[in-house]
Design a protein around this nucleic acid. Structure first.
Lengths: 251, 251
DNA sequence: CGGGCACTTGAAGATAATCAATGCCGGTGG
DNA sequence: CCACCGGCATTGATTATCTTCAAGTGCCCG
């Protein structure tokens, strides 16, 4: 069920237009949007339930997406049926750039909770980029950042211990929420423990134990998916050097 | 020591022009080159010795590079002084795309042996892209592939054991050489064991042991950096499932 | 109220890291 | 030409970290 006016959607009682979007500040696509006053095919706000796939690995690239509200995860499926979480997406994030390589999605994107996204069909993007080549530069910039993030993750996985990884992950989430104007020290994780484990290349059990340990150390107050960070500084210290003498995964 | 004619360089006795370049087939930048008949600032072929840095992490992005001959590695330096190898670059590879994110290099690129590169200053690229927006799409495509490769690496590091990683790495090199028209089963690794270890997130000792084990299993003939692969199929089998009952890192 | 799924906890085991030492090759200088 | 040096690579023994297996708890949803 979608509205007739493209670029506009009724969500609850509110009609949302890109011009009104509170995410303009963090949204890579407002250049596209600015060229999309009328009927453009851009659809903003399509509420999807938890578990919904925006696209699946192997599908042809048709559109890029921006998260408006809620959150999603990207993952790749391995031949042996396992799932590797690649990235978590919060409001403002652009999804699907990796598919620009071969025109086919190399990862799947799935909603982790009720989510609304803005959909930018590829042809619309190309049209907009034709009018304003700066858009290409913009997307390229985004792609560059994406690569940089992957590098940071490679360092994390290659050189850091389990506790350092979890601490770094929590700080990453904290930063993301802060950047969106939410609290940096109190938030709810939208993803399951299993997803965190996959993302950090750890076993679920290890992640679980680490949460417990962090809590016992007073680094964290955890209640299921609700997180409170008493001291960002202390958590940063753990992310940097790890408590080599402080914590062990097993209790 | 550089030639006067840009886009042309004397290397040994041969004058090399992009138009003559045997890498055209694999070179992302021939679109740029085709707009660079005259004095463009593009410098092709600048022989640099082993150890030479094309750029360093933190430096302002000034140009992208394409490897013409030889090989290089990209790595990021961590706060604690460690080096994380991100990628190896063979002839035809485009280097520096990650810096398109913030305009600053987030990794360093260093020659692993005598190397020649083509240098594409950013403004030249932008000019060329102005004439032919398809170039943007081209670079974007490359960036997408880069991201996809990072995903593959994430899967490798997260889900695979040490022997599977090394096998996958060797097959990766094999494919790369085959793609360049060289032998897929006999080649010299341009990088040190330490670099392989870093790239695969393993200790040097582990890599060394694995080479030895592979050799004993008849999977590989290794002499220092010279590699011969008797059976690609068998190596692929190891990369897939690992010899869970077959090999152990320690002797 | 019951079932299933997500999460937690514990104990045993495996994989790869670390520590420590030796071997090999290539280059340099006597 | 040979001897020495330094970096790179290999090998062995021990240990730490994390995984795996197994079981149990609690919460959410029908």
């Amino acid at each position: 069920m979608q509205t007739q006016e493209s670029n506009v959607v009724r969500f609850g009682q509110a009609a949302l237009r890109c011009a009104d979007c509170r995410l303009q500040r963090v949204c890579v696509m407002h250049t596209v949007a600015s060229h999309c006053a009328g009927e453009t095919g851009v659809k903003c706000g399509r509420p999807s339930p938890r578990g919904h796939h925006l696209f699946r690995q192997g599908e042809r690239l048709q559109a890029l997406y921006i998260v408006r509200s809620g959150s999603a995860k990207s993952y790749v499926s391995t031949p042996d049926g396992l799932e590797q979480v690649i990235r978590f997406h919060l409001p403002g994030d652009l999804i699907g750039v990796d598919a620009l390589g071969e025109g086919t999605h190399t990862s799947s994107a799935q909603a982790m909770e009720m989510i609304t996204v803005c959909r930018f069909p590829l042809d619309v993007i190309e049209d907009a980029a034709h009018h304003d080549p700066a858009l290409y530069a913009q997307i390229l910039k985004h792609a560059g950042r994406e690569i940089t993030k992957e590098h940071a993750r490679a360092v994390l996985l290659a050189q850091r211990g389990a506790d350092e990884r979890l601490a770094a992950f929590l700080l990453q989430m904290s930063d993301a929420y802060a950047h969106l104007g939410y609290s940096a020290v109190a938030f709810n994780l939208p993803m399951a423990r299993q997803d965190i484990a996959s993302y950090l290349a750890l076993a679920v059990e290890t992640v679980s134990r680490l949460f417990t340990n962090f809590q016992h150390e007073g680094l964290l107050e955890v209640d299921r998916r609700s997180i409170h960070i008493p001291s960002l500084e202390r958590l940063r210290a753990v992310a940097r050097a790890s408590g080599k003498t402080l914590l062990t995964a097993n209790g």
